[in-house]
Design a protein around this nucleic acid. Sequence first.
DNA 1: GATGAATGAGTCTTCATTCAT
DNA 2: GATGAATGAAGACTCATTCAT
Lengths: 210, 210, 210, 210
Amino acid sequence: MSSVHSTENGQRRSANRQARGIRRRAEILATAESVFTEVGFEGATTNLIAQRAGVSPGSLYQFFRSKQDIAVSLAELYVAELTKAQSAAVGAPGARESDLNEFVDRSIDVMVRFNAAYPGFLALFMRADSPPPLREAIAPLQHMLSARIHEVLAAHMPDRSEAEIARYTLMVLQLARGVMPVIATEENPLESPLTGELKRALRAYLAEIG
Amino acid sequence: MSSVHSTENGQRRSANRQARGIRRRAEILATAESVFTEVGFEGATTNLIAQRAGVSPGSLYQFFRSKQDIAVSLAELYVAELTKAQSAAVGAPGARESDLNEFVDRSIDVMVRFNAAYPGFLALFMRADSPPPLREAIAPLQHMLSARIHEVLAAHMPDRSEAEIARYTLMVLQLARGVMPVIATEENPLESPLTGELKRALRAYLAEIG
Amino acid sequence: MSSVHSTENGQRRSANRQARGIRRRAEILATAESVFTEVGFEGATTNLIAQRAGVSPGSLYQFFRSKQDIAVSLAELYVAELTKAQSAAVGAPGARESDLNEFVDRSIDVMVRFNAAYPGFLALFMRADSPPPLREAIAPLQHMLSARIHEVLAAHMPDRSEAEIARYTLMVLQLARGVMPVIATEENPLESPLTGELKRALRAYLAEIG
Amino acid sequence: MSSVHSTENGQRRSANRQARGIRRRAEILATAESVFTEVGFEGATTNLIAQRAGVSPGSLYQFFRSKQDIAVSLAELYVAELTKAQSAAVGAPGARESDLNEFVDRSIDVMVRFNAAYPGFLALFMRADSPPPLREAIAPLQHMLSARIHEVLAAHMPDRSEAEIARYTLMVLQLARGVMPVIATEENPLESPLTGELKRALRAYLAEIG
DNA sequence: GATGAATGAGTCTTCATTCAT
DNA sequence: GATGAATGAAGACTCATTCAT
């Protein structure tokens, strides 16, 4: 009985440990995000991240192989979260969008909310010179967004060539990307007039090419 | 007599020196630009820049107070060059734009040409994040571009409030900034379809808000 | 009554524990030996040893005070094993050697066999330098081997001074130590011609000084 | 004239600089040797070496690419010095040795002197587990010594097979290697009785196989 | 003005060891 | 007794900057 008991204890202990480990990892990741946001990837030191997370440098390296691994993990988190948010708000990929304007509005809202929620996203991945591993880490995200836009545009412009659709897709993505960083710094991003203006700009462009 | 003579010599020598100094400075700046472009601001070491510029590290610090100062000086150079280019192509600031669309087209062309000519511009200042040391260097550039757009928009929309004009200005700037980096990587940027699409997008937006 | 019972239980349990403890310790020591052999003393990490031994780092420190203590314990093990092997093959210490040549041959065979059986022995203790932490661990081994040789030499050269005997002892030990590492890397060490040559060399030296 | 003068100054300055650089490098190397001797290669820290050499860590890395490079450079020094010493004392390779015993005596003296002069040699390179680059660095030395011994033995034993000569060569080398470390720690190595004993041992072995 | 050797604070990372559970 | 997460003191190495010449 005592052995059974100790096994139960062991299980509970290891469950607790695992839970705390996951929490710890998440805390470090959140701390890292804010440090990256403040001082950039190269400006951030692992010792500072550790200290701010209330953890020893050694502990940090129990959760992340390297400084870069922290950024990659962050990217993975973003990919997962954004995919989730996009599906929830705009509908699963494949669902026809009856109205292009609706699609634009909802997508922008999703992006705005996302950027507000994860300030590190802009700070780390919207750079011209991210080191290759970071770039790779967000590639899926790029692809997902592009695919979604491409699909909707193609459905609404059946007469256009692949190349044209691809071009429009890229334009929409980059136009939004240009405005997003400044929206993200607003007080209340979702209600910001800039958010409205971005929607207007995209709608105008889509009407023009339609 | 000899003192007069030596003074004349001194003047001539100091003029020569100054000229060579200015040339040196420009060379270092050009070298720094290409190094920044290759490896980014933090990836660049002052020793590498000095070496590639054929100058000793000590000399580099005779022209620039710090690594950051190099970037700031580069930004100032860009401001000057871009102002010149803009004036030449679009008309001096203050000159009324008869047609907004004309203004857009010419401005975009200027920017595209400029980005092609100065690769460091994109590498350093078109980043969505800007590591803190670069943030202040970028400000004058921002202001110059904004001022130009603001002026033209204000002239064409006399009934709008300051705040609205400011908002539209920011939008135009950011929309262009989003697309510019991908235009810059094209084979022949000026003829790229994306350049045309950017003009279309901006015209459509301006028409919408007009 | 119950207390008696529990005491009996306790005794049996503690006996079991102790037995398992000894086994554990031996397992860790064996693992450490192979890790040391693979990557050297400084290359080995206590965490790796623990992991390979299927033990937690904390447990390892229940058996060994420090990393150095592992090496010392290994040395002690070698002293014990080598003493045993030596006694079995050459006769217990104290037993007169009728023939010096016999003694040489048997001792070399013992050493060769031992080196083949315990690769860690060479890796840790046959190094010409010994990093300071290992220096003290090696001492007992040195002493044991020296004592054995000294005794036999003294018995066969009653007319020589202490100092001379000590010198000859050291010579024999070091001559053998020089050749042993290369013998140990041979396919079949015991049959290697080098083993024969080492015996010849030592016999020749002993004859010379005899 | 003043320009000529400044050129002369420049030349003198750069000559001075180079001279000081070479001296500095040699000092660091000497310091490193003694640190390696005291605490071993892995025990030595680059910061300690720098400090003891009266140099900043950064300066150390101006002369040596890495900690390992220091050891490799030391090895190269040893190779050069020992080659020089050997040629001077025993005669250039190729010169027939009339007497084997003479050859042994002189070679041992050279080695003893060398080991006394460069204590780092034993500490760094007589180890069972030197990292590969260190091993490579002394390989030439090994080869030189082997070649020299091989040549002399072959000349004196024309009837033996290649394999036998090779074996004897290896034996001589290793027998000497075993005793050398303890000779090197003696007060006055050249006069140490152990040096005499080593010569005796080698002569006895060579007589035996002759 | 120019040089480049010298600096040293600071970076990422490791690992022997401890300790709460 | 066992566990393994946590620790934190170093270590090798870099690089913006200075300064004697």
